[in-house]
Each structure stands twice: as C-alpha cells, then as structure tokens.
Design a binder for these strands. Structure first.
Lengths: 227, 227
DNA sequence: CCGATCCATTTTGCATGCATAATTCCGCTG
DNA sequence: CAGCGGAATTATGCATGCAAAATGGATCGG
C-alpha cells in the first residue's frame, strides 16, 4: 500500500507502473492483476486501467482482450530492432544539434565529457553511465526537436529494462570512450554528418554489449516457454 | 449517434477518434467534450476517457488537468520536426529493407511503381498518392522491424491531418517521380546507403510541399489566437 | 462603461456497481 | 490415475454515481 499523493492520479500511476516495470518489480510476461495493483498503489481501478492503456500504447505492456495486461517480453530481436531505431534517431539528433547548438551548450557538453572521463579513470561504471546518458540527452536537447525527443525517450524507457552495465568489457569501455572523444570533436566542428555516423556506430556497439549480456534474454525466454 | 459494434470498445473508440481528428471532424484546438462525444459514439465515459489517454500518448490530443482534452494543433515547426524524424525513420527502413528484402518483394514494389506511373501519366493525384503510400509501406514492411513500423505509423497518422495534395506543383510532381525511379533502382541494387539518402531527400521535399500549402497552417494559427 | 466577485451549472476525475468472459477447482468417467 | 466437464469463483469491460474543480453569468463596485 504505497499511496500516491501528488498530481493527477492516472499520470502518477503511469509513472509508478513504468518504474515498477523498469525496476523489475513487475517482471516480463507477468500478468498485471487489477485488484492487486489497485491495493499496492492505493487507487481504484479506473485510473489504473487508464494507465494500462497508455503503457500499452508505449509498448511496455500488452493488453489481451478480456484477459488483462501483461508486461511485454523483450526478445533479442526486439532489442536489436529498438537499437536500430534509436541509432537512426540519435544520428538525426546529432545532425540537428550541429546545426543548432550554441557554443556555451557545446562547452557544457565538454564539461560533462570530462566528468565522464573522471568516472572512467576511477572505473566507476554507474557514474560513468549517468554522465554518458546526460551527454546523449544534452545532444538530444540541442537538436530542439520535441517529436524526436519524445520518440527517443519512449524507446530509451523500453530498453532501460535490460540491465547490462556489469557486462561491459574493459576493451569495449575503452572503445566507447574513444567514440565519445570523436563525438565531442564532431560536435565542436559542427560536423553533423560525421557525428551522425559516430553516434550510430556507438549505438550499434552498445546494442552488441547489451546482447552479449543475454542472461536476461535467456531467462525471459525460459519464462516465455513456461508462461 | 454512430453506434460502434465490433471488438473491444476502447480500441474502437481510439480508432474512431483518430479518424475524426484526421478527417477534420474534430478540429485542431477544439475541446473534446466527454458527454457530447459519448453520445456521438454511443459509449459511456469510461472507454472514451481511456481513449483520450491513448491519443494523448500518441500526441494527437493534449490533456489539460481538470480541463479536458483538446486536439493538438500542428504548427509549421511541428510539421518540420515530424518530417525530420520521419526522414530518419524512412532512411533506416530503406537500409534495413536492402539487407532483408527478397526478390519477389522487390518485384512487387516494381509493380506498384509502374501502377503509380500510370496514375502519374493520367494526372490522377489521389490514386498516385495511394500507390506512393503503398510503396513506402512496402519498403517499411520489408525492413521487418515492428518498432520502426509502429513509430513511423504513429508519425504518419499525425501528419496525415495536413491536407496538401492539391498543392503539389507539376514540377515537384515530376521531381518526385524521378526520385521514385531512383528509389526503385537503389532497392534493386540493394544499395542501402543510397536508398537512405534518396528517401531522406524525398521526405524533405515532401515536407517542403506540405509547408508551401500553409493555408491550413495559417488557419490553425488564427484559431490558436482565437482559442 | 469596464472589470471583479460570487453563485449556479457544467465538466472533469475518481470510485463503485453490474454483467459477461475467463479461470479455477472439484467431481466424474474411462 | 489421467483426462474431461461443469459449477463456483474471480477478473475484466463498461456504465454510472458522487465530489471537486472549472466555466458561465449575473450582480456589484469603481
């Protein structure tokens, strides 16, 4: 019984459920029982059901007619598909950013880059990823395209469910940092075409890292057979 | 009172509302009165409100807390933003299609291409657009990436609201057909990189055509001031 | 004459109720 | 003992009810 207080209820329920799915509180393939979740969230069925519809349209849950909602399962192929699209979107964000970004925004990204390097030097993977994400978000923001941002965030939310950080090899980490050097360089030069290519490759590599840590994938496949 | 019969109600309501928005039955900026729409669709408020949430997450309507739903307004900038993203997505679909498409699927696209040319020769703009869309859908399908397809369709649904067909000049039409020749050629050669470039330019040009017919844009801007 | 304020009406947000479809459980049959 | 069938239970889908917020309008004050 985790009562929600602020704002409009259905939005809050959407956020809470999203978090629960991303955090693994609600496991892939798990059936979402309305009554049970109502109690857990302290709301009635109406806002909960509205939230189900939203999450379904975002692709986080699957709605089976007369059979309730289930958390969608991510197959290896789903992850590949999502990363391909994210690659295209990030490439576009890079191009747009190069045409629009101001010098001080580039300077801020450079600062984030150095912060990230510091965490890299200390081998602090978690903080490294946090800064990494901030840099990508900054580029996305510099693209100044809300449609792009919304779509990217939607996909990012879906892949975030896959936990893979522990799986990045030292070599891959080194490579990622080199890629980030080139990202910053292209951004400084406002070379949109180059930045697009680098970002796409960067995402492709990230996808490979995620897919290597396929323990989750295997686990989910096992559940798929069972459930 | 246009009673809905088949399938689950909320899905049907989502489709109906989407159509009403695309067709202009519900005008941009218009407030969506629950009671009125309930009567028009012959459903109660529950499925209608669920549909609102879905359409909001798709970006077709805007939800104002305690103040109901309004059809989102498309500014010139929104259209540009959406076309940029669609360009990136189509480019990706071209690349993926080139790696995956089978010969018979290419043959089918060639057939569609010739059908389109026939309508072009007869100056039948409506049918030309229909075939045009079929070709793009075929390439998208050949990419075999459901995530990509879903995102593209979502955006396509949003820009479809803009009626622009009448506005294409003869020169631009000629150019579009030339681009389509190159699209088919690149597809036959399985030259993904080339196809990506052409498709992006193609979308960019389409965006320009849409923006030229800014009568709608002006009208909506006027409404924006009024509403 | 214009603007602000308070009350009546409408509308929204959420909870609950009811009918139908799904699931479970139990006894039955082979 | 496994498999099947049907009733009881549970869950879902939709409609409706109720309280709070917003909207509209008339009255009042400047």
């Amino acid at each position: 019984m985790n009562k929600i207080l602020r704002g409009s209820l259905h939005d809050e329920v959407v956020s809470r459920l999203r978090d629960m799915i991303v955090e693994g509180d609600l496991r892939p393939g798990e059936r979402l029982n309305e009554r049970e979740l109502c109690e857990r969230l302290g709301v009635s069925r109406t806002p909960l059901r509205e939230a189900f519809k939203v999450l379904a349209s975002e692709g986080l849950v699957m709605l089976l007619p007369n059979r309730g909602a289930r958390v969608t399962r991510l197959t290896r192929r789903d992850i590949e598909d999502m990363f391909h699209v994210m690659g295209a979107l990030e490439a576009l964000s890079g191009e747009l950013a190069c045409t629009r970004i101001a010098d001080d925004a580039v300077a801020e990204i450079r600062a984030l880059h150095y912060e990230m390097l510091a965490h890299y030097a200390r081998r602090n993977l978690r903080e490294y990823f946090r800064l990494n994400e901030q840099i990508h978000r900054a580029i996305l923001g510099a693209a100044e395209n809300p449609v792009l941002t919304a779509m990217y965030n939607s996909l990012a939310g879906r892949v975030r469910r896959v936990r893979f950080m522990a799986n990045m090899s030292s070599e891959r980490w080194d490579e990622a940092v080199r890629e980030h050097e080139r990202i910053l360089d292209a951004l400084v030069r406002r070379d949109g075409a180059a930045l697009a290519v680098i970002l796409r490759a960067h995402l492709e590599h990230k996808c490979a890292v995620v897919l290597e840590s396929d323990c989750i994938d295997a686990e989910e496949t096992a559940e798929a057979v069972a459930g």
